[in-house]
Design a protein around this nucleic acid. Structure first.
Length: 271
DNA sequence: CCGGACGCCTGTCGGC
DNA sequence: TGCCGACAGGCGTCCG
């Protein structure tokens, strides 16, 4: 479910309700997520004030005095801020109960998400250490992509979805960015020139920024913190549109499996 | 080092 | 109507 725009949307939704609030306790009804919810977490967060909230890649970070509660939403995770007494429904695995009577509730049907306790320096955490740059930062541009692609034979779509190369580009926005840049998703990454990588980096930035402005993409179960859907689904040009008319040439959009993931593209507009 | 396959888990959808 | 397989927005790990 969540790619970078959905995680950013979640962050922006929950932050005003959590910043400067105090955590009363953590309630884990189900600890078997992608990794077990660490027992140390309960003690680490109880009674602590949330000083700030951040995002790194697809991880949300709630900064406390001694460390950070780190949340990953996996494929199907979502966060809501609710009155603490709201009865949990199926797959509502964890509550972060605040002293103000509300709670942050994690729902995650597939349980691919995870919770972690991380202490400074964050950059040394195994899950964060080897991540590539943020796509919306100035560290990320066409020159960077071009350099990293030297000698790579993997498909460019697989390449830009590799979090060691650049973070936050998931299956939807990879297809969309490659369409915008006119690049065939199966083209070997090492056989694309600098000028085309400049276009691709720009496309990734534009697609992600536009999706954030529209509150992300709701295809199945993604909802914002307030329960509203994201509206970027209506802006998707090729993702999920196999057989429909390409917005560029009106030819049929094709679906193809690349790196075990469904990929959508226009064979005429993307080379 | 690189690239590809696999598995984690539940829900949904299309075809028969 | 019911069953069954395929597939779904991620990503760490293993193997060649």
């Amino acid at each position: 479910m969540p790619e970078l725009p959905e995680v950013e949307t979640s962050l922006r939704g929950i932050a005003p309700h959590l910043r400067d609030r105090r955590i009363e306790r953590l309630v884990a009804r189900e600890r078997r997520l992608r990794w077990p919810v660490p027992a140390i977490l309960d003690e680490a967060v109880a009674g602590q004030r949330i000083q700030s909230l951040r995002r790194r890649a697809k991880y949300l970070l709630l900064d406390l005095a001694e460390g950070s509660l780190m949340i990953h939403l996996g494929m199907s995770g979502s966060l809501r801020v609710l009155p603490a007494e709201t009865p949990p429904t199926a797959h509502d695995h964890v509550d972060l109960v605040l002293t103000d009577g509300h709670c942050l509730r994690l729902r995650d049907p597939r349980r691919f998400g995870s919770l972690h306790w991380v202490t400074p320096p964050l950059e040394s955490h195994p899950l964060l250490r080897d991540l590539g740059p943020e796509p919306l930062s100035s560290d990320f541009d066409g020159d960077y992509l071009y350099r990293r692609a030297r000698g790579r034979r993997a498909a460019v779509k697989t390449f830009i979805m590799d979090s060691h190369i650049v973070v936050g580009v998931g299956n939807i926005y990879a297809s969309e960015s490659l369409f915008m840049a006119g690049i065939h998703p199966a083209r070997p990454a090492g056989r694309i020139g600098a000028a085309r990588y400049a276009a691709l980096a720009e496309s990734i930035k534009q697609v992600l920024a536009a999706a954030i402005l529209q509150g992300g993409t709701s295809l199945r179960d993604f909802v914002q913190e307030n329960g509203n859907p994201g509206y970027f689904a209506q802006s998707l040009r090729v993702y999920g549109r196999a057989g429909e008319a390409c917005p560029g040439c009106a030819g049929p959009v094709r679906q193809q499996r690349i790196g075990q993931r469904s990929s959508f593209y226009c064979p005429r507009c993307q080379r």
